[in-house]
């Protein structure tokens, strides 16, 4: 018999293949390859909560990415904090930034985007994406927060270690190609 680590079932439940399914535990482990939406229906006196599979709402307007780099590096955009239509794609309905494992961006872009999102929130440009009990009118904020602010994107730190690796790779590729030409 296979030995299944328990944490593997709990955390990566959807990634565990169906062959390793153990019925004696009483846990239903499935491998859905679709997006899920949770519906709560009241039938008579019973509350039925079920997860239904739905197609992705972004399927039709998605930009295809065939390169090795992440989808944002591929486009080569200079994103500003006022580009709310782009920034709102990385954000949950309550306004918080989605983690790297969901967005699928590289480390540098993920950090940059999360800072731009916080800038857009501070400037009051994404008020519609906020928790239900929050003040959505920026003029009702406290102290200095009620006044208009804008931000300079050049203040965002760029991590040099990222570029160091790219530079090293460029040099290594160049040396490789030179060696091939000589041979």
């Amino acid at each position: 018999m296979f030995k299944i680590p328990l944490s593997g079932i709990l955390l990566g439940a959807s990634k565990v293949p169906t062959k390793l399914f153990v019925p004696s535990i009483g846990l239903h482990v499935s491998a859905p390859m679709k997006l899920k939406e949770i519906h709560a229906n009241k039938v008579g006196g019973k509350l039925i909560i079920e997860g239904a599979f739905v197609p992705s709402p972004r399927k039709d307007h998605l930009i295809p990415n065939n390169s090795e780099c992440c989808s944002l590096c591929n486009l080569g955009l200079n994103v500003k904090h006022t580009d709310v239509l782009i920034l709102s794609q990385f954000v949950r309905p309550d306004g918080c930034m989605m983690p790297q494992r969901i967005t699928g961006l590289c480390k540098t872009q993920q950090k940059r985007m999360s800072k731009l999102v916080s800038m857009a929130h501070k400037a009051g440009l994404m008020c519609s994406l906020a928790p239900a009990n929050s003040k959505k009118d920026t003029t009702k904020r406290k102290l200095w927060k009620k006044y208009n602010t804008y931000f300079d994107e050049s203040t965002i730190k760029v991590y040099e270690s990222h570029f160091k690796k790219i530079k090293e790779n460029v040099i290594l590729d160049y040396v490789k190609s030179r060696n091939q030409e000589i041979n």
Partner: peptide
Amino acid sequence: IEKYPKIIDYPEDFILSK
């Protein structure tokens, strides 16, 4: 907002929140 070109898609096992 819906018709604007999307850069990223949700992963396959993502649960959409209302």
